[in-house]
Computed example of a mutant assay.
Amino acid sequence: MERGLELHHIGVRFGGLTALDDVSLQVPPNQVVGVIGPNGAGKTTLFNVICGFVAPQTGALTLDGRPLRPRPHQLTRLGIARTLQGTGLFAGLTVLENVMTGAAHTAHAGFVSALLGLPASDRDERRLRRQALDILDDLGIADHAEAAPTTLPFAVRQRVALARALAARPRLLLLDEPAGGLGGDDIAGLAELVRQLPRRDTDPCAVLLVEHHMDLVMAVCDDIVVLDFGRVIATGAPDTIRDDPAVTDAYLGAAVDSDVA
């Protein structure tokens, strides 16, 4: 039975600093789950635990009820993909080639075949190219396939980074501040894309989203987890979180105060 990703009572300390304290959450299949909280709440540490960059001192992770001990280089084989803050694209590759790198782990031909240009390697490249073009088309940026990423607007580069993550055909996509640097229209377009990811006819995926833009979080998430000082202070649907006094005090109220200032 598919239960998705679950974190059970995760605790992380860095010296005398508690980054995460008894954090539990679930990302069920075919849902978008958001993680919000003030700066320093533990959101980045949470992502790093899931990706295997940080090992928790307490608690455990499971995937479909089975123990999960993630390693960064094994994430794609586990069905997990992650976008980075910024874009992290390879400047020396075209848009199409960048997206193809996201699916490189699915190539059947080995290094020697690729080096010698053997038929198996050619078949892999054609297959990966077709898949990458299909994803670019789905995201509305296929016209930029042969462009260098550095020549494109930031909003388009963000979509290229998303396309590269989707090329891995993940069951779970981790989105780390995907709206950073985007304007209002671009955020609305991103929201539409994220909403559709669990509902795609081909390769649907659950999404775990860390984001500061509350309009995006409220528009796309099925459930939201709120962190403050490394602890979960609220979990629920967007309307529930919006009306929660503890969330208002810890996060939303602070954002309003900063806007007024």
Rank of each mutant, 00 (worst) to 15 (best):
E2N: 10
R3D: 09
E6G: 00
L7H: 02
G11N: 11
V12A: 05
R13Y: 14
R13G: 03
V27H: 01
V32C: 07
V32K: 02
V35I: 14
I36W: 03
N39M: 08
G40A: 13
A41H: 07
G42S: 11
G42L: 04
V49H: 00
I50T: 00
C51E: 11
G52M: 08
G52T: 06
P56K: 03
L61I: 09
T62W: 01
R66G: 04
R69H: 09
R71E: 14
P72I: 07
H73V: 06
L78N: 06
I80G: 00
A81G: 04
A81F: 02
T83E: 09
L84Q: 04
L89E: 00
N98P: 02
G102Y: 10
G102N: 07
G102W: 09
A103Q: 08
T106W: 05
T106I: 11
H108K: 15
G110N: 15
S113I: 02
S113C: 06
L116P: 00
G117R: 11
G117M: 12
G117F: 12
L118C: 08
P119V: 10
A120N: 08
A120E: 10
S121A: 15
R123I: 07
E125P: 03
R127S: 06
R129L: 08
R129A: 11
R130E: 15
Q131L: 14
L133G: 03
D134P: 01
I141D: 01
I141S: 00
P153E: 13
P153Y: 15
P153A: 13
R157F: 12
R157C: 12
R159S: 06
A161N: 07
A165Y: 04
A168M: 05
P170R: 02
P170L: 02
R171V: 00
R171A: 05
L173V: 07
L174P: 04
L175Q: 06
D176C: 02
E177R: 04
P178I: 02
A179T: 03
L182T: 04
G184S: 15
D185H: 15
I187T: 11
A188G: 08
G189R: 09
G189S: 13
A191W: 08
A191R: 05
E192T: 14
V194S: 03
V194T: 06
R195W: 10
L197W: 02
R199N: 01
D203Y: 11
D203W: 08
A206E: 04
L209Y: 01
H212Y: 11
H212W: 11
D215A: 15
L216V: 13
L216K: 05
V220C: 02
D223V: 10
D228H: 12
D228F: 09
F229H: 07
F229N: 03
G230N: 04
G230D: 06
R231Q: 12
V232W: 03
T235V: 14
P238Y: 03
R242I: 08
D249K: 05
G253C: 13
A254V: 14
A255E: 15
A255P: 00
V256M: 08
S258L: 15
S258K: 14
S258R: 14
D259M: 12
V260H: 12
V260C: 03
A261G: 09
A261M: 13
